[in-house]
């Protein structure tokens, strides 16, 4: 008897919870972050780009998954056009281009991602501080940005690389040094608009220090801008690396990057051995494209209004 009532009660509560689940819980939108994630994955180009980049990183670090050659392994077959054994052909020393490309990709990606991290860090910090304090530091930041606008990036890079040598660490630091301004400007604009919001006033009234506000409120709330600009910075870093390396100032042998490969194959850029030049060029192009797609995908995901325009 009591058991029957219990089950009845159970039924009622089950129905009630089902009702609650259907009508109330599901009408509550998921937290902002997951909404953005869903929108990001709805963007086909961005999703494909993520898959492409993950595959690229895995292949670059484990090239033996698809090639039978080891790095710098020289075979008797020199300058073969693409075929079934050497998918992208061989270079003038008989090395398999695909293998070389993947090993070179390690350096390129490492430089690009390191630049992304460092310049995002510097840029968001400088942008937040400049936006929040808005007086001396702000005008200083703007003047520095002006200076970097006037002196072309290539000049700074070429000079600095000549001075600090062929270490790719130096390259990472220098490219970061010239590419953090973009992030800084975006974060600054974001902080300027956040600054007058109520929660910042509340934090101030609670007696929070400026440093606390910058690190706990302003930077976390600028996260969307930071994510977008870091993907964009990485894309720019890859292009910059390939350009300086192509001019001969960048990564030096025995290290190879895609830019360095382009430099090595410069002599074959016109004519029947064009495929030598084409492989690193296409690798650069598609990687930059993927980062651009991700950057735009993030922007649309965080700010749905921009998608419509």
């Amino acid at each position: 008897m009591s058991g029957l009532e219990e089950t009845k009660e159970n039924d009622v509560s089950k129905q009630a919870s089902k009702h609650i689940k259907e009508t109330i819980v599901e009408s509550i939108p998921p937290p902002i972050k997951f909404r953005a994630l869903k929108r990001f994955y709805a963007n086909r180009a961005a999703t494909i780009s993520v898959v492409f980049l993950v595959a690229l990183i895995v292949l670059c670090y484990f090239p033996n998954l698809i090639t039978d050659f080891s790095q710098n392994e020289q075979t008797a077959f020199k300058r073969l056009p693409p075929n079934s054994t050497n998918w992208l052909g061989t270079d003038l020393l008989g090395r398999d281009i695909l293998t070389e490309l993947l090993y070179a990709g390690q350096i390129t990606l490492r430089i690009a991602i390191a630049v992304g991290i460092i310049s995002t860090f510097i840029g968001s910090l400088a942008g937040a501080i400049a936006g929040y304090f808005h007086k001396i530091i702000d005008s200083l930041l703007m003047r520095v940005t002006d200076l970097f606008l006037v002196v072309p990036q290539l000049v700074i890079l070429a000079l600095a690389l000549k001075k600090f040598g062929d270490e790719y660490i130096a390259m990472v630091l220098i490219i970061s040094l010239i590419s953090w301004m973009f992030t800084a400007r975006l974060v600054r604009a974001q902080v300027l608009s956040l600054k007058s919001r109520e929660f910042i006033d509340a934090a101030k009234m609670n007696g929070r220090s400026s440093i606390y506000i910058v690190f706990r409120h302003l930077i976390p709330n600028s996260w969307s801008v930071i994510a977008v600009s870091s993907a964009f910075t990485i894309a720019g870093a890859i292009l910059l690396e390939s350009t300086v390396s192509f001019l001969g100032f960048g990564v030096q042998a025995p290290l190879t990057s895609w830019g360095r490969m382009l430099y090595d194959f410069k002599g074959f850029a016109i004519g029947q051995y064009f495929y030598l030049f084409l492989s690193p060029a296409l690798a650069t192009f598609f990687t930059v494209l993927a980062f651009n797609f991700i950057s735009d995908g993030l922007r649309d995901a965080f700010d749905p209004r921009s998608e419509q325009s």
Partner: peptide
Amino acid sequence: SYFGIAVPTFAFAYVLMNMFAL
């Protein structure tokens, strides 16, 4: 425009050279 933003200048130049001169 995605193409124009992502392509390395010099690589594009060489592709054109091959195409129109060869």
